[in-house]
């Protein structure tokens, strides 16, 4: 984790200079010569890791191969490992196809995920800070009411939430897709845990400088919590980008489709244009792959905090 910027490019084999941090506790075996049995064990483990890695990369390879192939190449009984000619034309065909609102769906997904992430983190961080740091007689009751909703996952309550949102007239609107996702009890809970362990001395210093609660929060606490904010934000963004059930329920009109709904609609349709579908899928995971390569440290940190507490 401390490897920092050393996140290797996925799929690439040229990762020789991966900075393995020296002096890690895990390196305790260095210096002690291995017995033959240990050497065998180590070799077997390496082999399994390499084979597993190839297996795990296989779906990505298939995605890219099919995205850049012609339909004839994909459906050919003769397996080709790589398209004979790389079909860059598939990109323009996908975005030019009037039957597939790909550009619109991408824009919708970007807007929804960004706004939802920013909103959920802001609302969640504020609430988490209030619960952690502002003494209030009924804070325990409020926290209990929030934590209680963690018992029932949002997916199970999609019928009630749909009833609510449709009553508000928000079906097939961006509001309907964004707003219910702003209030995530888990985000509040994680921020509360985090802020409870925030060094009080820093806040006291801000207070002595004459800052009130908002001043301390926005000028002292937030700037000193950048990495935690980054972790929660990336995790929220990924969840929002890949969300399926709620957009499926709400985005009934094709103008409000997210990328996932557009893909799903054509995947479950009767007739399928394979190369276009695979190109659409490749385009749809590109932003997240970029995120994974650039911000892996924060994503890993986010997974650790959500998983352990979740």
């Amino acid at each position: 984790m401390t490897a920092g910027g050393g996140a290797p490019t996925p799929g690439g084999t040229a990762v020789a200079p991966v900075p393995v941090p020296a002096g890690r506790p895990a390196r305790r075996r260095t210096g002690i010569p291995m017995t033959p049995a240990q050497r065998w064990g180590s070799a077997v483990r390496s082999l399994v890791l390499v084979l597993g890695a190839l297996l795990f990369l296989l779906p990505f390879y298939l995605l890219v191969r099919n995205a850049f192939s012609t339909n004839a190449d994909i459906t050919s009984p003769q397996w080709t490992f790589f398209p004979r000619t790389v079909q860059w034309a598939n990109v323009s065909e996908l975005f030019g196809d009037p039957a597939v609102p790909m550009a619109r769906s991408l824009v919708n997904s970007i807007v929804i995920s960004s706004v939802q992430t920013a909103g959920a983190v802001l609302v969640g961080a504020l609430a988490g800070y209030g619960l952690a740091r502002i003494p209030y007689r009924y804070a325990g009751v409020v926290l209990g009411a929030i934590v209680a909703t963690l018992l029932i996952p949002a997916a199970v309550t999609f019928v009630p939430t749909f009833v609510m949102v449709s009553t508000l007239g928000w079906v097939s609107t961006l509001r309907g897709l964004i707003v219910p996702g702003l209030f995530q009890a888990l985000v509040v809970f994680l921020f509360r845990q985090y802020f409870s362990n925030f060094p009080r001395e820093l806040e006291e210093a801000g207070r002595i400088d004459g800052l009130g609660y908002p001043g301390v929060f926005f000028r002292v606490v937030v700037p000193n919590s950048a990495s935690f904010f980054a972790a929660i934000s990336t995790i929220t963004f990924i969840g929002s980008w890949n969300a399926f059930l709620w957009p499926l329920v709400i985005a009934q009109d094709s103008t409000s489709w997210t990328v996932q709904i557009a893909l799903s609609t054509f995947l479950t349709a009767q007739t399928i244009n394979l190369h276009e579908l695979f190109m659409a899928a490749a385009v749809s995971i590109l932003p997240l792959l970029a995120l994974f390569v650039l911000l892996q440290r924060f994503i890993v940190q986010g997974v650790e905090s959500t998983g352990i507490n979740g």
């Binding site: 795990f56 890949n242 997240l288 892996q296």
Partner: peptide
């Protein structure tokens, strides 16, 4: 290649169920 292996095995988390279902 510890970091490399970790990344490879973690990478599918970036994939949505829709894309995975497609593949």
């Amino acid at each position: 290649f510890k970091a490399f292996f970790r990344s490879v095995y973690f990478l599918p988390t970036a994939c949505s169920y829709v894309v995975a279902a497609l593949i």
